[in-house]
Design a protein around this nucleic acid. Structure first.
Length: 464
DNA sequence: TTGTTTTGACCCAGA
DNA sequence: CTCTGGGTCAAAACA
């Protein structure tokens, strides 16, 4: 006790403040990234960080910061994709660096720097995020790479690549077609992701997870829709859970495009910019439920949906992407800033909105929403590391494709998910997860198929 | 000036 | 009743 007290003295309460340096992302992000990148360094740094009077954030000396950190961030956010680990390391080494860049979405503003040093950070991030988001949202791309392997690779090797490369990588990971679709989609704005604008109203470190969970509200005045973004303890997957239903049309993405257009261009050919987005949003205009998008490669031409714990090669990316995806809405929010005109949503300062029905939509509960008539007890699916059993499928209004429902086969686990095809592209799927696994991933795939099998066995063991 | 993000604190439900 | 943890609030800091 005494010791603690003593220790406390020097420690001031951290004050909520934003990092001025683009390099430094939000704490959560940083934390996340740090974890992803190198737990070791992170820890040490973290320790240092903990004892700070205030949250110290370096101001972005645009120059220096950008050089090392942005990249690092970039790397982080797209670590797999982008910058070399060196950069990251450098940033880490910096004495002042309180936070280690984490593989995560760059704070809106870092992205541009990353990609186009000329453009604003936010742009870049957006771009990246968008791209990823699009990718994800647009289609769940198959990833040929073993998730696990991927993640590792992403951390180390990928860091050296450009974001573009990253994207390409992603693409490559999936079939070329997919990749292209991804690219194209990626070109598109994020907003298209879900097409709504969101405001982050909270973030919390969730027990059992290395990554914080973020809470977002729809910025629309009368809209009570909320969503939360979460990453698995592996940090591999991001989970987006939507609650409630939007009682308003989606904000128009277009302006955003204009403003962001150049970025996108940078990232990809912005041929479809807005258009692409629409794909997703249009197709799922009313999805107010929880969705999680994951990519996975499949040879069958069908998409494999990663459920919540798929370690993706660029997990960070995926996560980031997921994040971004999730953040599309957020992005849009940002875009909305600039484009506010577009959005009818005028946000009043923090209004207290209580989500009446957090349970609205599917997300509220963990019970399985859909009880299949059909006795479709398809085989188990282990795409995300968890084992799923298809228990039904039905056609949802607004969608021309049937939605397939799966639930975790773990006896005590109420987690369920449904996969919905979003576009004409058979590989494009949106996976919505509901609930949280009350158990670990059966097995973590090391790398390859072999690992898969082994993982299965391990999973079985765990179950036992 | 206004909206967004960060983040510790608070509230409440469940164990 | 207490403890734990998730969800939300709201001041401060920023853009």
């Amino acid at each position: 006790m005494e010791v603690n007290e003593a220790a406390k003295l020097p420690i001031a309460r951290p004050v909520a403040s934003r990092p001025r340096c683009p390099l430094y992302k939000s704490f959560s992000e940083l934390l996340t990234g740090a974890v992803d990148i190198s737990s070791t360094n992170v820890h040490s740094e973290m320790a240092i960080t903990t004892i700070r009077p205030k949250t110290i954030r370096l101001k972005p000396a645009t120059n220096h910061a950008l050089v090392g950190e942005p990249s690092s961030q970039v790397g982080v956010s797209e670590a797999p994709v982008g910058f070399g680990a060196d950069n990251i390391l450098q940033s880490v080494k910096k004495p002042k660096v309180l936070y280690k860049p984490i593989a995560k979405l760059a704070p809106k503003k870092t992205i541009p720097l990353l990609e186009n040093k000329g453009s604003s950070v936010s742009d870049q991030q957006r771009v990246i995020a968008d791209a990823e988001a699009h990718i994800q949202s647009a289609n769940e791309v198959k990833q040929q790479h073993d998730p696990t392997t991927e993640s590792k690779q992403s951390l180390s090797a990928k860091s050296g690549q450009d974001k573009k490369k990253v994207r390409s990588t992603i693409v490559s990971g999936s079939t070329e077609e997919v990749a292209q679709s991804l690219i194209n989609t990626s070109n598109v704005d994020r907003p298209s992701y879900d097409g709504y604008n969101w405001r982050k109203y909270g973030q919390k470190q969730v027990k059992g997870s290395e990554y914080p969970r973020s809470y977002y509200k729809c910025t629309h005045l009368k809209c009570l829709v909320k969503k939360k973004v979460e990453r698995s303890y592996d940090g591999q997957i991001t989970e987006i859970v939507y609650r409630g239903e939007h009682n308003h049309p989606k904000p128009q993405p277009p302006k955003r495009n204009l403003s962001d257009g150049h970025r996108r261009t940078a990232i990809c050919n912005d041929t479809s910019k807005e258009t692409n987005n629409p794909a997703w949003s249009n197709q799922h205009p009313q999805m107010s439920e929880a969705y999680v998008c994951r990519r996975e490669n499949q040879n069958d031409g069908g998409l494999t949906i990663h459920s919540s714990k798929v370690p993706c090669f660029y997990d960070p990316i995926v996560a980031a992407g997921m994040h971004t995806a999730v953040r599309n809405s957020e992005d849009s929010a940002e875009g909305s800033k600039k484009l506010k005109a577009t959005c009818d949503e005028q946000k009043s300062k923090r209004r207290k909105i209580k989500c009446p029905s957090s349970g609205a939509g599917t997300s509220g509960e963990s019970t399985f929403p859909y009880i299949p008539n059909q006795s479709t007890t398809d085989s188990e699916i282990t795409e995300d590391g968890f084992r799923w059993r298809k228990y039904g499928q039905k056609v949802v209004k607004g969608s021309s494709y049937p939605r397939r429902y799966y639930r975790c086969i773990s006896p005590k686990c109420n987690v369920w998910k449904f996969v919905e095809r979003t576009t004409d592209d058979p590989r494009a799927f949106i996976t919505t997860y509901e609930g949280k696994h009350n158990h670990g991933v059966p097995n973590r795939r090391p790398n390859s198929e072999a690992s898969k099998t082994s993982s299965k066995s391990s999973a079985m063991k765990e179950k036992l």
